[in-house]
Structures are given as C-alpha cells and as structure tokens.
Design a protein around this nucleic acid. Structure first.
Lengths: 361, 361
DNA sequence: TTGTATGCGTTATCAT
DNA sequence: ATGATAACGCATACAA
C-alpha cells in the first residue's frame, strides 16, 4: 500500500482549488463559504482521506484537548475503576485521557505529574501519595490549569472527588459496637502510602472512643503478609482476643478471613470482619463480605465532570463528599461469649436489631 | 503568583542574549555552544522556569511521543493489569500513554481507534472486539504506524501479545478427564464479545473429543445472571448431571460456585470448577480456585516492548505465545459416583496422582 | 560558535 | 465569499 505521509489541509485546498483558509472554514463549519466551493472541499477531503492534525490544531489553539490523569496503580481495581469512570465521562467531550502511574512512590508521583504537565495537558486529575507535598501540583495550580483530585480529602486550592473516610470508618465502629464488640482491631498495609488508610483508622479510633470502647489494636502488615495467608495467620495469632477486625480495604479483609481460617477461627462466629471499598467480588463470596460500599467509578465521573465544567469556563466548586453505604454482608456477628471479652462475659446489648444498612451522602 | 502565558524558548534566548537556535542547541545538548553562552542559557531557562512545549516539538519533529491504547474496559482487572504493564514498560521511554475504552462495543471500538489515530499517536496497542473487522486498525497499518495487539491470536499484518487460549483450555479438559469427569460444561457470557472466550470453548471442546468424552454442555448467561447468584442457580439447575464446569474466566467461576452453593451442591465434592485468568483473589478464597494462571501485566509489558523496538527502527517480530500455568487450587476433585456419570458408576482412573501443575510457554 | 530564516499544520486576521 | 499571510513553539539547514 502507498505510504501516504499524512495529508494536510493544504492538500485538500489544492485539490479543491481554493485557499487553505477556505478549506479550513468549510471543514470546521466556521465562517461562510459558497455551496459550490463547500462541495468541492468536502469531496476533496473525503477522497484524500483527510483528517485534522491534532498537533497543528493544538499549536494554534493553545489547547491540546488532552487531560492528564495520575493514579498510584491500575493493578488496584479501585483506581482502575475510577479511571474507567473518568474515561466514560470524557467520552464524546473531545478530550483524550493521558494516564500515568506512580506505583505508590512519592517521587515518581511528582515526576509523573510534571511529565504530564510538560505534555501540555489542558487539565489534571490525580490521586497522589502526598498531594500536599507535590511541587508539580502547586505548579499546575499556579499555571491556572484546572485540577481535580480523587480519593483525597478537600485541600486548599483544589477541588476533590472523595468519600468521607473518617465518617465511613465511624460507621463501621458503630456497627461493631452495636453487636457488642469491645476488643477490635484495624488491619492496614504498613508504610501505607495513603491518607485514606490513615483517615479510616482515625475515624475508627475516634468512634471507638466515643462509644466507650477500648482503643482498637492497630495491625500493620507488609505486602508479603497480605499475599500469604500463612504469614498473615502468624501475625493474627499475635493478637488474640480480638472479636472484630476492620480491614482498611476489601482485599485485606478477604486475606484476613483466609488467615483466620488457618487458625481455626470461623467468621463471623469467632471473629467479625469488615472491609472497605465494596469490590464486587465481595458480594459473591461464600460468606459475603461486610464492607463500606463506595463507587470509585462515580468518583472518577465526578472528577471528570468537575474538570469539564471548569474547562468550559465555570468556577471551581467543591462538591460534597460522595455517599457511601454500609453493606452488612455475613461476616458480622455478635462476639462469642468467653472470647476476647476482657474476662467478662460479653453482654448482648439491650436491643440489637439485625444489622442494617446506613446511608450517607 | 500568576504565571502568565507559558514562556517559550524565545524568552529564554532573549534573557540569555542569544538566538533561539543557540538556546535550542544548548537545551537539547545538540550542536555546539561556548561555555559562556551555555551557562547563560541554562541559568536563564532555570530562572524563567522554562520547559519545552511538547506540542511545538511534536509539530516540528513529526512525532508526538505518545502511544495510544485501546482496551474494552478498565473495570475488568485483566485489562487494567495489562494497561498497567504497558504503562510500566513505557516508564522512562519518554512516551506517554493515551488510553481509551470501548466498553465492549464494536462500533465504539473502531471510533476510539480512529480518535486515537487522529491524535497523532506514534504507535497503537489494542484489544478490540473484532480486530479483523476494524477499518481503523487497517488504516493504522497502512499508515505505517506500529501496532501491537494484546490478548488476540496472531493475525496477518499485526504482532500480538497473547496466551494460547485453545491450548490452555485443552489443559483444563485434560485435568477434568484425568480426574474421571465425563459430563462437563463450559460457562460463558452470552454475546461474549471476545474471541478469547470462543477459543477457550473451542480448545475445551476439542480436547474433550480427543479424550473420548461427550461434548461439554455450553452454558451461556447474561450479565444479569453473572451478578445474581440466584438467577445463575436457576440456569445451573437446568443442567443436572454435570460434574465439572469450566468457566471462561475466574469471575464467572466464583459466581458459579456461589450459585452451586444455593443449590446445595458442594465444590468440589458435588461439582468441580475451573476458571481462567488467575486473578489474585482466587488464591485467597476459602476454597482456592483452580484456574489457568496468566499474566496480563506481562502481556502488556511485552506489547509495549514490541512497540518500543519498532519505534527504534526494529522490524516487526511476532513473539511466541506467553506461558500459562495450570493452578490446581482446591475446586477440583474426582466426580462423586452416582452423579452425572451417564448411569454408570464413574471409575477412578487407574492412576490418578494428585492434581499437578502444567507449564506451557 | 552563532544567528537568521524556514517549515511543521492549523486557525484568525485582514484584505480583497 | 475568498485567499494570502501571520502567528503558535520548536528544530534545523544554512549563512555568517
């Protein structure tokens, strides 16, 4: 086949026997043109298989029609879904998505954002390790480039699409307390490069205290333990007496149940478990996972929408937190008397209705 | 701190008191320049916070340093991981990733690819609904734009990064047969917009026949059934007598077990189940899922590598299929005598060693 | 070694 | 209604 080095509007104009300006006007439906020349230009463009060069356009219009997106990793379904949401919302807007991953590395984070900026993206959407410390993020703000954050709590100078991690975590603590649990734990990835995890712990801790419960045991594990049930079991065994554990995400919650099984503990009879995120697989498990259901996809959509509005001249507005939803699942039960009850027999709270559902938004 | 309109190399040249060509040479380390002016240019660039405009560069060099990537959806972890692999491999290469999703829609597929092309991407990497019917894909080939496919079988004119679905499915059939299963089934999404699923069925069917087994029952379900265990259970109930089912992906395999449970069938005692993909969660389940383990991440990396090599002038080379690995898990067992054995008591095959593992590559 | 001028593909301006 | 031309930011051939 003929190696056709891209044909430009100049070729079209020549074929149509008119000036490039006229061809441009016709092809863009801007300005006016006689039906005659309009026809000639259109057929010429069709015949030659002409298509605009986005680069030429970008150079002249000073807009790349490109939006940069930075997330820690696409291997994490939560982020992948969020990006999917962004992508979906951008469909038909004319904007294309330029993506980059930091792999949870703070330095890579900043570098990636800088790279995105240098690509002349018209807007930025990001989930970072440490947005408050990112020079590139500040730079974007100063340059007047619209920025939307995802998953992060509201931050001075930037709009963000997020769920209230603290409040959601409090809800979990309330559910635990309602069932009569006192000795609880919080399971998280060590070196958790995430303010999300921190906020969840903070909320959980705060509500435990508010409810008069002892402080939860903080169980931090590494990636290795999260993937190897036997290793996690060892760690879990070092925390006897806990009757309910809140894992900072669903994946950990599932791994946790696996480890518990190795110790001969049944869920929820011997230990209650709750997760966070609401990944779909959780619903399909033999024992459906109790969790805070969120919608990363909606988060991505909202972030994209915020950006599009700003790109159309709107002022930046910080929307309220997205709603979450407590899903009871089947991994929650009252603690078994005699286990982890500080030596006393755990009394069933006076009136504990069956685990219900909580909305917030 | 209102950074005005971006500063260009012209500003740098002016500040450094030299011509733009000299500034360009210094900043690109091309050509020669006196230590004197070199110093002035560099400090000027630093002081002004100069950075190149990717667009200006692209226009002049005819290369956008951008690679387009099309996948059906990022909500599917298999594709998300593949993109993550692409992304990882592209790190530091100077190329950025432009992504788009088709949502399994063939028309959107072609349109998205066209859009990517119109963005002047230097190369394309895609997983499509019907690559063999995509006009945009052909166009890319004709234009001489390097293209790499992912997940697809080798196709005339394009290189692809893939696993041999047919061979992998045969392996599953062999495992079933080894355990003594005869009445088997293949579970897939109806309207499965995927040659992967078709190839898996073909391989499964072929090996069943080769092994003298009856043809497997083809069980096609819709999205709704896949997400609602009770509905899937109804369908499953319509196929009594099956002792082993091969689901075309792990997600379906998990949903399948859920449905079986509702029918009171135990896995693997009453029914064996195998999946495909090897998603991580499968290993963490109470009953670890038997599956064909693949690495979408490796697939993405390979595809990206193929592209980078071509962009550096290399000739297109089709690499061999990526290896897969049969993971025995715990969802496989010999059929229970008296169930689904065509009326005869299923004989244990003469020498059935414990389920082992098969490599291919 | 350095600067000037040109062209990359497009649109906006301004004549005609 | 139409077309010639000037940007846009950059790299480079060519001249100095």
């Amino acid at each position: 086949m003929t190696h056709k080095s891209a044909i430009t509007i100049k070729d079209v104009a020549q074929a149509a026997g008119c000036g490039v300006a006229t061809a441009s006007r016709v092809l863009n439906n801007s300005g006016s043109a006689s039906a005659d020349v309009r026809e000639r230009v259109e057929t010429a463009a069709r015949d030659l298989g002409f298509s605009f060069s986005a680069i030429g356009r970008a150079l002249q219009s000073r807009r790349s029609m490109t939006i940069g997106c930075l997330v820690p990793s696409l291997a994490n379904p939560v982020f992948a879904e969020a990006v999917q949401g962004v992508q979906a919302e951008l469909q038909g807007s004319g904007y294309q998505l330029l993506i980059s991953c930091s792999n949870y590395d703070e330095a890579a984070d900043d570098a990636a954002l800088e790279m995105l900026l240098s690509k002349d993206t018209d807007a930025l959407i990001a989930t970072m390790v440490a947005p408050e410390r990112s020079a590139a993020l500040q730079l974007a703000g100063r340059r007047g480039i619209p920025v939307a954050l995802m998953f992060h709590d509201p931050m001075e100078g930037f709009v963000t699409s997020y769920v209230d991690n603290v409040e959601a975590a409090r809800e979990v603590a309330r559910q635990f307390a309602r069932l009569g649990h006192r000795r609880t734990g919080f399971l998280a990835l060590r070196f958790s490069t995430s303010d999300r995890s921190r906020n969840r712990y903070a909320g959980f801790l705060a509500e435990c205290r508010a409810g008069g419960l002892p402080d939860p045991a903080l169980i931090e594990i590494g990636e290795a333990e999260a993937r190897q049930p036997d290793r996690l079991a060892v760690i879990l065994g070092q925390h006897p007496g806990l009757t309910a554990i809140f894992a900072s995400n669903d994946f950990l919650a599932i791994a946790l149940q696996n480890a518990a099984r190795l110790l001969g503990w049944r869920v929820p009879q011997d230990m209650s478990v709750a997760g966070f995120d609401g990944i779909e697989i959780g619903r399909l498990l033999e024992v459906p996972l109790a969790t805070i259901e969120t919608s990363p996809e909606a988060m991505g959509r909202q972030a994209a929408r915020l950006l599009l509005e700003r790109l159309q001249g709107g002022a930046p507005v910080q929307p309220p937190a997205l709603s979450f939803h407590f899903r009871a699942g089947a991994t929650l039960a009252p603690p078994t008397p005699g286990k982890g009850d500080d030596g006393r027999v755990a009394a069933q709270p006076p009136s504990a209705p069956p685990a219900e559902t909580a909305q917030q938004g």
